Computed example of a mutant assay.
Amino acid sequence: MKIAFSPCPNDTFIFHALVHGLVPNAPKLDVMYADIDITNDLAAKPNGPDILKISFAALPWIQPEYTLLPCGGALGRGCGPLVLTKSNNPDPRALTGKRVAVPSERSTAYLLFRLWAAENVPGGVGEIVVMPFHEIMPAVRDGKIDAGLVIHEARFTYQNYDLNRLVDLGSWWEEDTGLPIPLGAIIAKRILDISSISNAIRQSVEYAWDNPTASEDYVLSHAQEMSPDVAKSHIDLYVNNFSANLGDEGYEAIYSLLGRAAKEGLVPEIDLSTLRWDK
């Protein structure tokens, strides 16, 4: 069975047990490690991997052969994307007409940015440049772009690049809605035994929590020169109860994000009730 997810610590931590045959009766996995921009694109094309980690913002574009799983993803509070600049000017209007780098045009981060910018950047930003997330901060530091939308461990390391936080989009979203931020989703092909796949992923999450040091070598081997402390902070921030079960609050957050974005014309409108198969 083919699966594609990112090399980020939260994903490798969650899937460590499943990938290494530590979940009883689970299928053997053929793993592809890829940035979210790549997996979002794969999900929108026919004949993609059996299981994928994508952005929740990409759900309106996925092939009808896929369905959302209720576990394995990333939602949370205090873990949202940041907009970084070299300047310490705190006025969002300074982004008007500027070049901004984003990790994916179909990422939750970019969708939140567009919703925020529509309210806070009169006239809109200028050019949007898509680049791998680990290249964004150096590009802002070196003046190649004016601002960068960053995710993941950049929350803990942006000061190392002498950058300034213009806005925490997670805080903005939480204050605006009272809901957690729906970041990364796990989808699987409908022809699979969705209940069994979900149970296997949930068991992998629970194994990771019960054996927190078991995955250390695996996590760090894919963490792109990240320090162990930063990797642990990353896991602590993005792996939580929503990773084991989206629950009613998780689904409400997803419905709110995609419903609001569709109303603003930022994503195609979909029947949100079809996203939940476990009720």
Score class of each variant (00 low, 15 high):
residue 230 V to D: 07
residue 7 P to N: 15
residue 243 S to N: 10
residue 6 S to K: 04
residue 79 C to E: 09
residue 210 D to H: 02
residue 276 R to D: 12
residue 133 F to K: 05
residue 12 T to P: 00
residue 147 A to T: 03
residue 191 I to P: 00
residue 84 L to W: 08
residue 8 C to I: 12
residue 106 R to I: 01
residue 149 L to P: 07
residue 31 V to M: 01
residue 232 K to D: 04
residue 79 C to D: 13
residue 80 G to R: 12
residue 9 P to A: 09
residue 276 R to L: 12
residue 171 S to A: 15
residue 40 N to Q: 07
residue 142 D to H: 12
residue 183 L to T: 05
residue 229 D to G: 13
residue 215 S to Q: 11
residue 269 E to A: 11
residue 10 N to E: 12
residue 163 L to F: 12
residue 46 P to E: 14
residue 197 I to N: 14
residue 88 N to Y: 14
residue 192 L to N: 06
residue 53 K to M: 15
residue 274 T to D: 13
residue 192 L to G: 01
residue 82 L to R: 08
residue 202 R to W: 06
residue 42 L to N: 02
residue 67 T to P: 02
residue 274 T to A: 14
residue 143 G to T: 10
residue 193 D to R: 13
residue 28 K to V: 13
residue 154 A to D: 14
residue 184 G to P: 00
residue 60 P to N: 10
residue 161 Y to N: 00
residue 237 L to I: 00
residue 66 Y to N: 04
residue 108 T to R: 01
residue 205 V to W: 13
residue 50 D to W: 08
residue 267 V to S: 08
residue 81 P to G: 05
residue 42 L to T: 03
residue 248 D to H: 09
residue 219 V to S: 07
residue 198 S to Q: 07
residue 32 M to P: 00
residue 97 G to I: 05
residue 201 I to H: 06
residue 221 S to P: 04
residue 94 A to R: 13
residue 136 I to Y: 08
residue 73 G to E: 06
residue 26 A to E: 02
residue 218 Y to L: 08
residue 95 L to Q: 02
residue 182 P to Y: 02
residue 246 L to N: 03
residue 132 P to N: 10
residue 210 D to R: 13
residue 130 V to I: 11
residue 111 L to A: 11
residue 168 D to G: 04
residue 127 E to Y: 11
residue 201 I to P: 07
residue 121 V to R: 07
residue 106 R to Q: 08
residue 144 K to V: 05
residue 24 P to L: 04
residue 228 P to R: 09
residue 131 M to D: 11
residue 92 P to V: 09
residue 48 G to V: 08
